[in-house]
Nucleic acid binder design. Structure first.
Lengths: 337, 337
DNA sequence: ACACGCCAGGAAAACGCTTTCCTCTGGTCA
DNA sequence: TGACCAGAGGAAAGCGTTTTCCTGGCGTGT
C-alpha cells in the first residue's frame, strides 16, 4: 500500500507539503509542487489511510447506529431516514444489527466507542430488564462523558436525546378502530413480552377498551415475535382458542400479514367475518388483499430526526421529540354489523 | 477519553504491560499486575482506540460491502447472508448504499480502501457504461494489488471472485411459464436499461419466446425502475398501449406487486384474464393476492458465498460460482385457456 | 559460590498521517 | 543598501496503540 511518504518522495517534496496538498489545508502551495504531488498520487493510486488520518486529526466523523435488524422493513425505513441526514452532513454511518440480543447490543456500544464515532444512535424497542438497562446506561454514560452524543428512537428507559414514537397512542387508535366499531371479542397478537414497544402498544389498546366499556382478557392476547410466521402461528392459536372473535389487532404489520394468510387459508372473509388491524404501515400493508388497516408511524422522519438530534451542537439539555401515530384506514377492518 | 497511558499510570505499570493484559498477548504477566490493570480499566471505563490499534497492528479486519440500497428487500436478503458469514468470522461489516449512482460507487470504493478493509464486496447489477467500468476496474485493481480482496455478486463486467445469479436462465424460466402456457401477447416490465441485470433477464425471456415460436416486440417492453410505483406506472402504460395482453412478466417482484395493484384497480382478474410473473421471490410474493408466480434466486446464500469467497485465502485464481434460478409457481399465472 | 538461563516488566520504535513551529528565500520600503 | 516582513516549504512532534528489544532479578545446576 502506497503511503504519504511514498508520494512525497516521488514528487520530491516533504510529507508535510504532500499532506497539505492532498488533504486541502489552508496553507498555500505553489502550483508546480501541487501538480507534481497530484501526479504522484495518481500514479501510485494513493489513498490516505483513514485510521492514520483519524489519529492525527482527532476528529470524529463517523456515526454508529444500532438497530434490531436492518432487513426488517421497520428498521429499513428508519435507517433510510438516518442515512439521508447523515450523508447530507458528510457522515459515514456504521450500522450494527443486534438481532434483539441485549448482550450483543452492549458489545456494539463498546465497539462503536472503540471506533471513536461522533454519535451512537439506538433504534428499536427497549427491554424490560433492569440489569441490562443499568449496564447499558453505564456504558452510554461513559461515552457521553467523553463528548460522545447519544440519541435513541423509542427507548424511554435510556437517557439522552430521544425520538419517541407514540406507541401507546397508536395502540389506542387501533383500539378505537375495533372497539369503536362495536367489536366485543377482539383478539390481540402482541410482540415479545420483554419489549417495551409491546407493553406500550398494549397499554393503549387497553385504554381504548376501557373507554368503550370493554375488556381485553388475557386469554385473547397471544405473544409472538413480530415476524410474519410467528404472527401466523399466533393467529391459529387465537382462532382455535376463541372461535367467536370478530376482530384481531396485530401489534405490527408483519404479523398482521401472517394473520391475513391464515384467515385466507381457513376461508374466513376479511373484513366481513373478521376485521384485522396492523401497526407500523409498512409498504406491504397496501399491497396485501384486503389492504391492511394499520397505525402509521413516520419511520423515515423519525430516523432523520434522531440523526439530526445526534449531530446537533453538543452541550444542551436532552430533548425528547414525540412522533405521532395516525390511523390509516384501508379495507381489512369494518364496524361490526 | 481515557487512554492506555491513563490506565497504565493508574495501575502503576508501563503502557506495554497494560497493553499486553488488555489485548491478551501471549506474553505472561503476574496475576497481581493483571488485577490492578483490569481494575483501572473498569474504573476508567477504558476502551482501546480502534484506529490506533489498527495502525499499530497493521491488521485488516473489517469488510466493506457496496449495495444499491439495503432497504430494498433484494439487498436486505443478500446482506443478511453476507453478515452471517462475516460475524461468524469475527468481521465487522461496513455497508454502503450507492443508490444506483455509479459515481457514488466509485467514491465508496475509495472510502473503503481508505478504511483499509480486508475485502470489498460489490452486490447488485452492473452498468452498461464502459467508461465507468474502466474507472471501477482500475480502482479495484489498485486495491487488489495491495492485498485487498474483491468479490462481486452478479457483475460479470468486473474481475475477481464472483457469485453469478443465473439471470438469463431465470428470464428463460419466466418465459417458459408464459409462452409455454400458450400466451402470445406478453408484456414485459423491465428494469433500468443501463443495468446488466435487465438485459440478462430480458435475453433469457427472448430465448424462451424464440423457443416457442413467439417474439417479444419492442412495443410490449416498458422500462421501469425496479420499484413498486414505477412498476405500476409501467403497467398502466402497457395496458393502454396493448389492450390485448394476456400475460405480463415483471423483471422483479416489487414491480410485479405494482402490476397486481393496477390490475386490481382496473378490475382485471388474475390469472383468468391476465397472468403475472415476477422475479426474485421476495418475501412479499407469497402474501399478495393472488400469490405471485416468480423466479427464485437464493439471495441469502449468494451473500454468504460471496463473503466466503472474499474471506478465503488470498492468492488463487478468481473463482466464479453460479447461483441457480428456479421457478416458484403460485396463483398469479396460468396457461391460456 | 558462581555462571548461566529464564522470565517479568519497561523503554522505545513503529504504524501513517496532520500540524505546529521553524527556516530560508525573496521582495518591499525607507 | 540594509532591515524587515511575508510567505513557501521542511523538520519534527504528536495522535494511541502494539511489539521488539533490552534490562535486571531470580532460580537452577554444577
Amino acid at each position: 500500500m502506497a503511503t504519504l511518504a511514498d508520494v512525497a518522495r516521488r514528487a520530491g517534496v516533504s510529507p508535510a507539503t504532500a499532506s497539505r496538498i492532498i488533504s486541502g489545508s489552508t496553507k498555500l502551495v505553489t502550483d508546480e509542487l501541487r501538480e507534481r504531488v497530484l501526479r504522484a498520487v495518481d500514479e501510485l493510486q494513493y489513498v490516505p489511510n483513514a485510521h492514520a488520518q483519524f489519529l492525527a486529526r482527532a476528529q470524529r466523523t463517523a456515526v454508529g447506529v444500532i438497530v434490531h435488524d436492518v432487513s426488517d422493513p421497520y428498521f429499513a425505513e428508519i435507517t433510510r431516514g438516518l442515512q439521508q441526514v447523515a450523508t447530507a452532513n458528510g457522515r459515514l454511518v456504521i450500522i450494527c444489527n443486534s438481532y434483539r440480543d441485549p448482550s450483543r447490543e452492549l458489545e456494539y456500544v463498546e465497539l462503536l466507542r472503540a471506533q471513536q464515532v461522533a454519535a451512537i444512535i439506538l433504534a428499536g424497542s427497549g427491554y424490560h430488564d433492569p440489569a441490562f438497562t443499568k449496564a447499558l446506561t453505564g456504558k452510554l454514560g461513559a461515552y457521553t462523558r467523553t463528548g460522545g452524543r447519544v440519541s435513541v428512537i423509542g427507548r424511554h428507559e435510556l437517557p439522552g436525546d430521544a425520538v419517541m414514537p407514540a406507541n401507546a397512542d397508536g395502540g389506542h387508535l387501533a383500539g378505537v378502530e375495533v372497539f369503536g366499531g362495536g367489536h366485543r371479542k377482539v383478539g390481540v397478537i402482541a410482540g415479545p413480552k420483554v419489549l417495551t414497544t409491546t407493553t406500550d402498544r398494549l397499554a393503549g389498546l387497553r385504554r381504548a377498551a376501557r373507554q368503550y366499556g370493554r375488556t381485553l382478557p388475557q386469554r385473547r392476547i397471544v405473544f409472538a415475535d413480530f415476524d410474519r410466521d410467528s404472527g401466523a402461528a399466533a393467529t391459529r392459536q387465537l382462532l382455535d382458542d376463541s372461535p367467536d372473535l370478530t376482530a384481531i389487532v396485530a401489534l405490527n404489520d408483519s404479523m398482521a400479514v401472517g394473520t391475513l394468510s391464515v384467515l385466507r387459508e381457513r376461508g374466513i372473509a376479511v373484513p366481513s367475518q373478521m376485521s384485522v388491524v396492523g401497526f407500523d404501515d409498512m409498504p406491504i400493508a397496501r399491497d396485501v388483499t384486503p389492504a391492511l388497516t394499520t397505525v402509521r408511524l413516520p419511520l423515515t422522519e423519525m430516523g432523520a430526526r434522531a440523526m439530526t438530534l445526534a449531530l446537533e451542537d453538543r452541550a444542551r439539555t436532552p430533548r425528547v421529540e414525540p412522533a405521532l401515530a395516525t390511523l390509516v384506514h384501508r379495507e381489512s377492518s369494518a364496524p361490526l354489523t
